[in-house]
Simulated scan of single mutants.
Amino acid sequence: MEGMKKERRILVTFDIDGTLIRSTGPNSNQLHRQAFSYAFNQVFGIDGGTIDVIQHHGSTDPAILVNTVVHYGISSEVAVEKLPALKSKMVEYAKATTGDIGKGLEVLPGVESLLQALSSKNNVFIGLVTGNLEEIAWMKMEGLGIKRDFTVPNIGGFGSDHTDRGQLVRIAAERAEKLFPGGFDLRVHVGDTPNDIKAAEFGGAVAVGVCTGFFTKEELEQASSGNAIILQDLSDCGKFLNLLGI
């Protein structure tokens, strides 16, 4: 009865920016960046506000919203109080300009092949764990033509859920378990920042780091408790599948 052997159930979640896709050219991540600026202006009247005034790589959209408006002189208490309005305005802008979602973005090498290979496995469930707000996250995936390879119904943990990335890894697992009961034999989270590594380990997943963002192999390794797997990129599909034991 070897053929009846139960397949290991695997949940793989991916960060987006710097992991699956990258910003390019003069219109780098245009829609997302402009959505922030629109929210700053609509809620606080901050004209010409930009997230570039703070260090935001590896952060979540809510944390970026709060930290940026604090930089512009808003108290942290008021910033947090107005966070729902800020998030709502970001989504409002993104939905109104959805045709621009792919501007200044491109899918990183190997990502499409890897997602297709993973999605062909009945025992692998694919989701997102990202600091992006949920609506904007899936709009990016759709606009760049890779949403089709994620498990349906879509699963993940998003900046709209929590400011802490570690909590997002847990939230994604809980949602996946509710939608696809039966438990997971392996959970993996893939990201390009030290915060992704820490979040994966905090959330009970195997951390896989990729050096396709702003951080080096050494910086990603230093963020780990010692068990993270660091890859140069996601271009070697076979290597990634071997890592999962597939």
Results as ranks from 00 to 15, higher is better:
His162Lys: 12
Asp185Arg: 06
Thr130Pro: 07
Phe150Gln: 01
Trp138Ser: 05
Leu168Gln: 10
Glu112Thr: 14
Leu168Tyr: 12
Met139Ile: 12
Met139Asp: 11
Gly110Leu: 06
Val111Ser: 00
Gly156Phe: 02
Phe125Gly: 00
Ser120Val: 11
Asn132Ile: 03
Gly145Arg: 03
Asp192Phe: 09
Asp185His: 11
Glu142Pro: 00
Leu168Cys: 12
Thr163Phe: 09
Arg187Thr: 15
Arg187Trp: 06
Asn122Gln: 15
Lys140Ser: 07
Phe158Pro: 02
Gly166Leu: 08
Lys140Gln: 11
Glu177Ile: 09
His189Asn: 13
Glu177Lys: 13
His189Ile: 11
Ile171Met: 11
Trp138Phe: 14
Leu115Thr: 10
Asp161Gln: 11
Asp149His: 14
Gly127Pro: 04
Asn122Lys: 15
Ala137His: 01
Val190Tyr: 00
Thr130Ser: 14
Phe150Arg: 03
Leu128Phe: 03
Val129Thr: 15
Asn132Arg: 04
Ser113Tyr: 09
Gln116Phe: 01
Val190Asp: 02
Arg165Ser: 08
Pro153Gly: 13
Lys140Cys: 09
Val188Ile: 13
Thr193Gly: 04
Ala137Tyr: 01
Ser160Asp: 07
Asp192Arg: 04
Phe125Ile: 02
Asp149Gly: 02
Val124Tyr: 01
Arg148Gln: 15
Lys147Ser: 14
Asn122Met: 13
Gly157Cys: 05
Met139Ala: 14
Val190Phe: 04
Gly143Asp: 05
Gln167Arg: 13
Gly159Tyr: 03
Ala172Lys: 02
Asp164Ser: 12
Gly143Ser: 05
Gly110Ile: 06
Thr163Pro: 14
Leu114Val: 10
Gln167Asn: 15
Gly110Ala: 09
Pro153Val: 13
Ala137Glu: 04
Trp138Glu: 01
Gly191Thr: 09
Asn132Asp: 12
Thr163Trp: 08
Gly110Cys: 04
Arg148Trp: 00
Pro181Gln: 12
Arg175Leu: 02
Ser160Gly: 14
Asp164Leu: 07
Ile146Pro: 08
Lys147Asn: 13
Ile171Gly: 02
Met141His: 06
Val188Arg: 02
Pro181Phe: 07
Gly157Asp: 06
Gly110Asp: 05
Arg148His: 03
Leu186Glu: 09
Lys121Asp: 00
Asn122Glu: 15
Asn123Leu: 02
Gly191Lys: 12
Asn154Lys: 08
Gly156Trp: 04
Lys147Pro: 00
Ala117Met: 11
Arg170Ser: 14
Arg165Val: 11
Ser160Thr: 10
Gly156Cys: 04
Asn132Leu: 01
Asn195Trp: 09
Ser119Arg: 09
Gly183Ala: 05
Asn132Trp: 02
Glu134Asn: 00
Asn123Ile: 05
Leu179Arg: 15
Gly183Lys: 03
Leu133Pro: 01
Glu174Pro: 00
Leu128Gln: 12
Ile146Trp: 08
Lys121Glu: 15
Val124Asn: 05
Ser160Trp: 06
Arg187Leu: 11
Thr193Ile: 07
Lys121Leu: 11
Glu177Val: 09
Asp164Cys: 03
Ala176Leu: 04
Thr163Gly: 05
Gly145Val: 08
Asp192Ala: 07
Ile136Arg: 00
Pro109Gln: 13
Val188His: 09
Arg187Lys: 15
Gly110Glu: 11
Ala172Val: 02
Thr193His: 11
Ala117Leu: 09
Lys178Leu: 15
Ser120Phe: 07
Asn195Val: 00
Gly182Asp: 03
Arg175Asn: 14
Ala117Trp: 07
Ser119Asn: 13
Glu174Met: 13
Gly166Ile: 04
Gly143Met: 08
Arg165Trp: 12
Phe150Tyr: 12
Pro109Glu: 10
Leu115Pro: 08
Leu133Val: 10
